[in-house]
Nucleic acid binder design. Structure first.
Lengths: 343, 343
DNA sequence: CCAATGAATGTTAGCGGTAACACCTCCGCA
DNA sequence: TGCGGAGGTGTTACCGCTAACATTCATTGG
């Protein structure tokens, strides 16, 4: 294995000078630099990042820690993160923190591996964990987390505004009786073996509020807000169930705002299976805009977050924190309404 | 920061003994071990993995390198990988190698960061790159790659058998005229700005062969095999286009086997939009089984790979290679047919 | 009773870089 | 002419851990 010492010997300089050439730090004369570069090329030298990490105290690693790695939601976010990090020389590691114990273990790993920074997505950490990370010099950025820890850097979607968009859209299409299936999990949680995103409650509250406010502003009465679920499978089933209730209400509602796309898919699937025409007999708007749901037929009208950009932005903020170029701040990303076939 | 020396001093032993306790290596008396553990707990000591990596030459990192991080296909695979690695003390890093240049850069990173092993997914590497990785002691496992490099460890799906399943299923349902939309990219590639998975050709060839063989074995004439595309958007559009051609053929086919789910979705969406009844007027089987497509209405009948298991298996094989417990080998994973609403 | 054995622990010397400081040379200016 | 200062380079001492060998001590069999 070629080391910096080999390069130094061949170029007839000290290891330190080679280090300076590699890191473009301080001044090196053009002649020396040329010699060193020639030796590097000739020997096919590759700096050992581990040794560098030990010497500098920085690993050059950034962690993406999320509540469920298999959630398709994460694909584009992680791509945004990776694409921001790679050119800057950072490598992205992933942790699937699908239980509280795992979160604990992940935090330990972040510290032991001297990870420079972490992005937590749909995940809450305790005050104590936050302090531990801080004292170990691991910077943090949160994406779409409920908690508002002091001095925490974050990237959030505008759930309230997104819900408003959905409601405004339905009203603009002439709908007057608009129901809402919330993602909110009330007191009685059904245990389906899935990890319950109870911390996401604020998301559903914000979305429900957005929906209600718009209806009120237009002098319309908000529906009863069926309590759905943030989990994939259960949400789908619940929505199917609620659709039947909604159809029996009098006067019959003409549109449903579903606070996430799984709920929307569940509702849609039930409507179609019952033979109803969407959107003429019942319109549906979803929220979260999975790429997939914009391609299917019928494509669901949905509120889409700029996921790639959210990941990219979070990574940029994190890198700013790491080199002390920036102070922690909060960024809110704007969603857009995708008009599909269901409205 | 607490180091191993601090623990040693407090426990009244040498650093080496502490190291032995941490790593459960060689024998340490119960009394000493207890003392050391007490000191570790008291001081809240966490070993520095970077220093350990430098000393041992192993980073404890495993890379998942793929052609397109935003492909929903990867979500479950990466979860399988992460879930296999984490308990074993390995951390997973991800690289989005969406161009040949990126592949090159990733290979360099793997070497510079002393990554213990890499899993390449839907990605080909050159003989030279393979040699470089080998000589740098980076073990490799390939998932679903076309190339068959000598001594390469791999995990593959059984594309041929999967296609056979799809065809057998259609025949069992009484279909006699079954068309096929392949993912195969012929000579004239349409440039849509997407990364063209030309290396995936073998996948499409295997699937087409499976489809043809079954039809022949049943004395049926295979269709003409429309050339689709492995890329998401383009495949969708091409399938829509082909459906119209297929409907004009005489006698009219009654089923289409689409070699991936994007093609199936494209075909389905066109059929529905033209007002045809699926599956009575035209049946569809897809291949690749995105989780999403098994939930939607109508749910697509599709050949599903055990993605989580593929990732998990690949990671296990890789860890075996890393500790020299296993020799490179080839594993073929079995797909299953998901019966949806389109057949 | 003593050498051989083996368990438990310590010592030494790195792993491959970099920070911090030391050093030398050359230039410009008082 | 002497001296401050800056550019360019080298020296030293780590970063925190472990491999490999050395040492100590108790046990045991001939």
């Amino acid at each position: 294995m070629v080391t910096i010492a080999d390069v130094a010997k061949m170029a007839g300089v000290s290891a330190m000078t080679v280090s300076r050439v590699i890191n473009h730090s301080s001044r090196v004369s053009d002649k020396t630099r040329a010699q060193v570069n020639k030796a590097i090329e000739f020997l096919d030298y590759r700096p050992n990042m581990i040794a560098k990490g030990l010497a500098t105290g920085h690993s050059g690693l950034i962690a993406y820690v999320m509540s469920n790695l298999s959630d398709p939601f994460h694909a584009l976010v992680s791509k945004g993160i990776e694409n921001a990090c790679f050119p800057a020389g950072y490598t992205v590691i992933i942790y699937d923190a699908s239980s509280d114990r795992r979160v604990e273990e992940c935090v330990n790993m972040l510290i032991e591996r001297k990870i420079d920074g972490a992005i937590f997505h749909h995940l809450n950490i305790s005050e104590q964990q936050k302090r531990m990370l801080e004292s170990s010099n691991v910077r943090c950025v949160m994406i779409d987390n409920e908690q508002e820890l002091a001095d925490m850097c974050s990237v959030d979607s505008d759930n309230y505004l997104g819900a408003r968009m959905a409601a405004e859209h339905l009203i603009a299409r002439g709908h007057q009786r608009i129901e809402c299936i919330s993602g909110y999990l009330g007191g009685a949680q059904v245990n389906t073996g899935e990890y319950i995103d109870s911390f996401q409650r604020k998301i559903w509250q914000d979305r429900t509020r957005g929906y209600r406010d718009v209806l009120c502003e237009h002098g319309l009465a908000p529906g009863r807000c069926y309590e759905g679920s943030g989990t994939v499978r259960q949400g789908f089933l619940l929505a199917q169930h609620y659709v039947r209730e909604i159809l029996h209400a009098t006067p019959r509602p003409t549109a449903i705002y579903c606070e996430n796309d799984m709920l929307a898919l569940g509702a849609l699937s039930e409507l179609l299976e019952m033979g109803l025409k969407v959107p003429t007999e019942m319109a549906i708007v979803g929220h979260d805009g999975l790429e997939m749901s914009t391609i299917l037929y019928p494509r669901i009208t949905t509120v889409m977050q700029p996921r790639y950009e959210m990941g990219f932005t979070a990574a940029e903020k994190l890198m700013g924190l790491i080199c002390d170029r920036a102070a922690p701040s909060r960024t809110v990303m704007h969603s857009v309404l995708f008009e599909g076939d269901t409205t």
